Simulated scan of single mutants.
Amino acid sequence: MGTITFLLVLSFLVFFHELGHFLAARYFGVKIHVFSIGFGKQIFAKEWKGTTWQLALIPLGGYVQMKGQDDKNPNLKEDGDDSYNTKKPWQRIIILFAGPFANFILAAILYFSIAMMGASTWAAQVGQVQENSPAFHAGILSNDEIIKINDTEIKSWDEIGKTIISTNGTLKFFIKRDGVIIAKTINPQISDSENMFKEKIKKRMIGISPSGKIINLDLSFGESLIYAYDKTIFASTMIFQGIQKLVQGAIPSSEVGGVISIGKVISDASESSIIALFAITALISVNLGVLNLLPIPALDGGHIMFNLYEMITRRKPSDQVFMFLTILGWVILGSLMLLGIYNDINRIFLNN
């Protein structure tokens, strides 16, 4: 069941990505020869409105084959108003960007659905209080519920940290203890901490940790839209930063995962709940969008880079340079995929 869920989710994400390219290309009048989910041998096909819609044997991706553009033949040129290569560079950039953009839209839709179904998060309830911390000296106790900081209403644990970091000076905490509202004045101190990439950082802290109590957020339609936007932006930023840290060496290459890791995560999420499955699908959708925007020649980001070059210089890169960089891009992608699979297999053996 987990494998079927993985293939369905992956196919859905690929379909949405390619649909973005398809709709933008059709908007600019580009003919689409093939819309494929999967690679390799065709196992199902249907012709509709001049396009062959197909399922292929290897369900680890997909593609939209436009007239005048084919990654298997980078030097392909086809004339006519309905050809990709006769479109202006800015039009081609929109067609290329539409795929990743569709993934961001899909992620936002999924996060919005989660919000409407009942997103859960940590309650703004204190668990442990660090000894000799600002919270300790202010008299904060375990199980205290933080309901407001200065003039900011607090609904979840995440909002506590955001408010502490985003404000300066002394803060006034309003806490509920045994049904009574108590005000406490706390002056956060700059302390050692770690970010999500386990790097040592300094940040304003008061020395408390969450109790672990889970609550469901009761969000209105408008609040759900904001929740979806914030989650999509946060996921995109996290993945961009993760790639940057990987290139810089702050994250070891052993952390790179492949299709096996993705499949396991999706399988585990599907067995947990529909909300967990939506959440991991949204995160993978953002991941797919971000990765496709990287300036690697075989990806959408690489093709966008070529078109930006043409817009700036008023000429296309030579066929030889274009072919060389495209092949180099495929080599880079292939190497990353092999690294991910190698790490996945290593993890399997280490866990057994």
Results as ranks from 00 to 15, higher is better:
Phe104Pro: 00
Pro317Trp: 11
Met238Tyr: 14
Gly169His: 07
Gln189Leu: 09
Glu194Trp: 05
Lys72Pro: 02
Gly118Gln: 11
Ile186Cys: 04
Ile93Arg: 00
Asp300Lys: 04
Gly329Thr: 04
His33Gln: 09
Thr163Cys: 09
Arg26Ser: 07
Lys31Asn: 05
Ser142Trp: 06
Ser220Gly: 15
Ala24Leu: 11
Ser285Pro: 02
Asp230Val: 10
Thr121Ala: 12
Ile182Leu: 13
Ser236Met: 12
Ile275Val: 12
Phe44Gly: 08
Asp144Cys: 04
Ala119Leu: 10
Ile345His: 10
Leu76Glu: 01
Ile251Val: 15
Leu283Thr: 11
Tyr84Lys: 08
Ser211Trp: 07
Leu13Cys: 11
Leu291Phe: 14
Leu171Glu: 00
Asn292Cys: 13
Ala235Cys: 06
Phe278Arg: 04
Gly62Val: 03
Arg315Gly: 10
Phe197Gly: 06
Asp71Glu: 15
Gln42Phe: 07
Met311Gly: 14
Phe15Glu: 09
Ser113Trp: 10
Gly29Arg: 09
Ile154Tyr: 03
Ala115Lys: 01
Tyr27Trp: 13
Ile58Thr: 11
Pro252Gln: 11
Gly340Thr: 03
Phe322Ser: 11
Lys87Tyr: 11
Lys203Trp: 03
Lys46Phe: 10
Glu255Lys: 13
Asp82Ile: 15
Ser133Val: 05
Tyr227Trp: 12
Gln130Gly: 04
Ser267Tyr: 02
Ile190Lys: 13
Ile95Arg: 00
Trp90Phe: 12
Pro317Ile: 15
Ala183Pro: 05
Val321Asn: 05
Gly301Thr: 12
Ser133Gly: 01
Met337Tyr: 08
Ala228Val: 04
Lys245Glu: 06
Ile140Trp: 01
Asn85Cys: 15
Ile186His: 00
Asp344Trp: 04
Ile266Gln: 00
Ile304Leu: 08
Gly207Trp: 01
Gln65Thr: 10
Gly222Met: 11
Asn168Trp: 04
Ile109Lys: 02
Thr86Pro: 05
Ile260Phe: 04
Val126Gly: 01
Gly139His: 10
Gly139Ile: 06
Phe240Ala: 07
Leu246Phe: 07
Met116Trp: 06
Asn307Ile: 05
Ile43Thr: 08
Ser209Ile: 14
Ile201Thr: 13
Asp71Lys: 07
Ile262Thr: 09
Phe16Gln: 01
Leu8Asn: 07
Gly263Ala: 06
Arg26Tyr: 13
Glu271Ile: 12
Ala135Gly: 06
Ile114Lys: 02
Pro317Val: 11
Lys245Ile: 00
Ser335Phe: 11
Gln248Gly: 14
Glu271Met: 14
Ala138Gln: 00
Arg204Asp: 08
Ile296Tyr: 02
Gly212Pro: 07
Gly20Arg: 01
Ser83Val: 10
His17Asn: 06
Ile260Thr: 04
Leu225Lys: 02
Asn287Phe: 01
Phe6Gln: 02
Ile182Val: 12
Leu338Glu: 09
Leu219Glu: 02
Glu145Leu: 15
Val34Asn: 08
Lys46Gly: 05
Met66Lys: 02
Asn103Trp: 07
Gly139Pro: 03
Lys184Gly: 07
Phe240Tyr: 13
Ser273Glu: 07
Ile58Asn: 12
Ser120Gln: 14
Met337Val: 15
Leu19His: 05
Pro89Asn: 06
His33Glu: 13
Ile105Val: 15
Ala115Gln: 03
Thr3Ala: 15
Gly179Pro: 01
